[in-house]
Design a binder for these strands. Structure first.
Lengths: 373, 373
DNA sequence: CTGTTAGCGCATTCAT
DNA sequence: ATGAATGCGCTAACAG
């Protein structure tokens, strides 16, 4: 017969289709379809058994593409990630995956690698694959390139960053609260000069919010009791030259502060690692993990392994190496961010018509050695 | 007319189809299809212009699903990643993406989060979406669950790990060479006790190879001049209790070595951070970054910030924090691994019938403070 | 309960 | 050079 001998599955040259199964089971395609969609109550046990057998024999797997084409939904959602290199993104992803899993969705993950052009390309590609919705954590998307998405197009929810001009659900860290939390921590620790270091804003709303909140907290402090001073430094990590320039400036500024207080060892500071005479009074507040890493590497190069005794460091984001390096951080509820994003998206896919919602989740301060005096 | 007024694209409730475009352009669907497939030579400039206009007006985007259904290939490939948390994976991914981009493929990234069950699920899901091939970097897939794949099924290429019983292309680090390289480095540095620390083998061939190469290098050394001793420690990172137990054992062993040479402070070793009297003669060789991080964290907890003066650490994989922590590593050519994997896969998708090939790429030793004496 | 029919959006013969 | 017809694999009315 045409039945495949049990021991030797000669690797089907062509995947079986629903028609094959129908023939094999001696019935119509409809019944097969019904079986696939779990409409068991409407199938005689006898038929059902035959179908089951046929499916097994043919190792049949329904073609999702075809199903999608027919019913108009393919259970695919797009997940646009600006930078997978950032542990934050990976963690969010885990939440997304878990939620998708739970809701029967399949996330199509697109990694734009910090390239705005890539983001555009992927967004368009996702559209082309007719994803039912997208979760966007992008660097440079503008309202226009997201036009097909969001509004009248496919549902979208933003992660971490708002997109100007686009009304869509958003879920992310409560940036104001987080930056305030961090700033106050540094103030309480008695640091007198605090630099908030952040990447160029591009279109990333969260970066702006964090800076603003930092400024706000600094001002509030000055109003009360403080004399601490806050500064902002923009660091374009994508541009090595710019980074070097900016860090050199930062170094000079730090030297000025130090010399003004203890020894006058300004200039290029020849690894003053072993002179903890002048307790650190300057702190760096990194807006996210990549920035923090860049700063830490620089500080280590400049002050040696004991750089922590010279300048304090605090970072939003809590990468796994923070513990190892002993860096105080503000951990984001990444997993939950991802999970909620999918939930929001799902509601809209299912037709919910609510206004755009914002879901701001709180960060958690994790104090380590880098900010203790 | 039904033409949409230029200024107000009221957000198409339903995406335009090829039929819409045909109607809009006043022609048949065939011509549209030809236009989409770049068969320009066969279209009158006049018609071509009309089509272009219609497409623009309707913001038409061909439905990839439908195309795929028709022509039997959807340009989708699956990329199964065991653990995105491991920077190695993300880096490989970048290579994969670049190659896909160049070849007109769309990678469907699946993150199994170190769960064998997930791997099975995703593999089956990919099959269901009729991907044209898969790149597999999995933890526990067996030949059987990969049966539909590989052999007679869809093309597959393995990354980093071989799958027993499955004949498929493989690309990854030259593990033997890399482990040998690392071992010899430690030997040259004069370390006398070296522990190779690795996660449970599961079905991961690369882990076995690394251990073997380590043993081999140690034996070779003993044969010549050495008296250094090599040990192996299996660390199940997924099981906190096991980790604790194993590390405790390691601690005792290290203490034994130390006491045998200088002071006899065995036992629980109360943070001997400030007794650099006994130069480190023991080294830990981590089989990959997650293991290295685990070890580093433990050492730091036990010996304090100066743990590096007590025991050396070397790791395969070169995560970004290695530089910060000053850990010697063997960097894998991750990007290239990903790129090559896609190239291999593409060849097979295009019908190449070569035997299974192995592509072993060399690792690069990056010496940092953690292994200098 | 079960089978027949008619498309989903597109690429492809095959005519014209 | 162009269009009409057919079918990819599947679901969703409609009949029986």
């Amino acid at each position: 017969m045409s039945t495949t001998p049990p021991g030797t599955p000669p690797a089907a040259p062509r995947r079986a289709t629903i028609t094959d199964v129908a023939r094999e089971a001696g019935t119509g395609k409809t019944s097969i379809s019904r079986y696939l969609n779990g409409e068991m109550s409407v199938l005689s046990p006898e038929l059902r058994a035959r179908i089951e057998a046929a499916i097994a024999r043919l190792d049949y797997q329904p073609n999702q593409m075809a199903r999608g084409l027919k019913r108009g939904r393919n259970r695919l959602i797009g997940m646009l990630v600006a930078d997978l290199t950032n542990p934050y993104s990976v963690e969010v992803l885990q939440g997304v995956e878990a939620a998708c899993h739970a809701l029967g969705l399949m996330p199509l993950i697109c990694h734009a690698a910090n390239e705005v052009e890539m983001e555009r390309r992927y967004l368009q590609l996702l559209t082309t694959y007719r994803v039912e919705g997208v979760i966007v954590n992008a660097l440079g998307v503008r309202e226009e390139t997201l036009r097909p998405v969001g509004g009248g197009g496919i549902p979208a929810v933003l992660v971490d960053r708002q997109v100007e001009g686009l009304v869509a659900d958003m879920v992310g860290l409560d940036n104001r609260a987080a930056a305030g939390l961090g700033t106050r921590h540094l103030l309480e620790q008695g640091f007198e000069h605090i630099w908030f270091v952040v990447q160029p804003f591009e279109r990333v709303s969260s970066r702006q919010l964090r800076v603003q909140a930092f400024d706000h907290a600094m001002r509030a402090h000055r109003g009360v009791s403080g004399h601490a001073r806050g500064h902002t430094l923009v660091l374009n990590l994508a541009d090595a030259a710019d980074v070097e320039r900016s860090l050199a400036g930062l170094d000079r500024a730090i030297d000025a502060v130090s010399s003004g207080a203890s020894d006058g060892s300004g200039g290029r500071g020849e690894r003053g690692a072993d002179t903890p005479g002048a307790p650190a009074r300057v702190a760096l507040f990194a807006a996210n993990a990549p920035v923090a890493l860049c700063l830490a590497l620089h500080l280590k190069a400049r002050y040696g392994a004991h750089w922590q005794t010279r300048v304090a460091l605090l970072s939003i984001d809590d990468p796994d190496w923070a513990e190892l390096a002993g860096i105080t951080t503000i951990r984001q509820p990444t997993y939950e961010i991802g999970y909620r994003a999918v939930e929001f998206l799902y509601e809209r896919i299912e037709g919910a018509q609510t206004d755009a919602r914002d879901c701001l989740l709180a960060g958690e301060l994790i104090v380590r050695a880098s900010t203790s005096r």
